[in-house]
Design a binder for these strands. Sequence first.
DNA 1: CTGGGTGCAAACCCTTTGCAATTCG
DNA 2: CGAATTGCAAAGGGTTTGCACCCAG
Lengths: 130, 130
Amino acid sequence: MSTAPLRNTRQRAAVISALADAEVFKSSQEIHDDLRQRGESVGLATVYRTLQALADSGDVDVIARDGETAYRQCSPSHHHHLVCRRCHSTIEVEAPDVETWANRVASDHGFVDVTHTVEVYGLCPLCARA
Amino acid sequence: MSTAPLRNTRQRAAVISALADAEVFKSSQEIHDDLRQRGESVGLATVYRTLQALADSGDVDVIARDGETAYRQCSPSHHHHLVCRRCHSTIEVEAPDVETWANRVASDHGFVDVTHTVEVYGLCPLCARA
DNA sequence: CTGGGTGCAAACCCTTTGCAATTCG
DNA sequence: CGAATTGCAAAGGGTTTGCACCCAG
C-alpha cells in the first residue's frame, strides 16, 4: 500500500484541466472530444486510464449515467448531486440526515462496510420552461 | 399513448416466472442462464427485450450494477434497497425522510419533475464473516 | 390471416488490454 | 538509463438491431 507514483505528463495535465473547466459530469469520451477541440489531443485510452486513476484516488466524483461512467471535479467533502436530466447541469447538495439514515438502516440489518449512492434528478428551472 | 398490446407468449411467461423465483437482482444474462438450466430456453435478445419492457411498464425494479443492468420483482410501493455488494442479497427498505428531503432539495433549487435513486451497499452479515 | 414476438447473428457502444515507442525523473 | 506512460488497434463485455420466420389473437 505504498503511495502510487504519478508522473506529470502533458496528457495528465490536459485531462485534469479539461475536467476543471467542465461544469457538468463528463464521460471519458466527452473529455476526449473536448481535448481534441482545443488541440490538446490525448489518446482515448489514456483519457480512460487517467480518469479512472483520478477517481480511484478520490480526486474526482463519479456517476453512472445510463451505460457510461461520468466524472466531475467536486468539492472534497461528502455530498450528493441534484442533476438536470435534460442539460445535465449539476448542483451539489448535502444530506446529513440521509447519511445517518443509510448507516442506521444498514446496521439494523447487520451490514458493514457501508456506502451509498444518492442522486436526485429533475428538470432545472431553465429546462423546465422549454 | 394507448395501452401497449402485449401478447402472452411462452417466452414472456418464462422470463416473468424466472424473475418471480429470483430473490436477488439479476441481469438479463443471468435470467437467460437460469432459463436455460430449467430447460425453458429463451433467446438472449428476447430476454433483453422482455426485461426492458417490464421495466418500462414499471412492473419490475431496475438497478445499475457496474456495467450492467439488473432487474428484480419488488413490492409495488416506492422503496429503496440495501444490497450486499458480495452476494447481492437484497433487503427492501423505506425512507420516508429521504423522500421528503429529496423533494425539498429539488424544489429549493426550482427543479421539477423530480425522481431520485438511493441505494445502500454493504456486506451482509454472512459475507462479512468471510 | 397479420402484426407483434422470437431467434440468430451481426452490429454497436463503452471500456479494457497487449505491446512497441516514448518520455519523465 | 529505467520505469511509468502513451497510443494505437485489437479484444472484450453488455446490449441493441436487422431481418426472416413463427405464432397468438
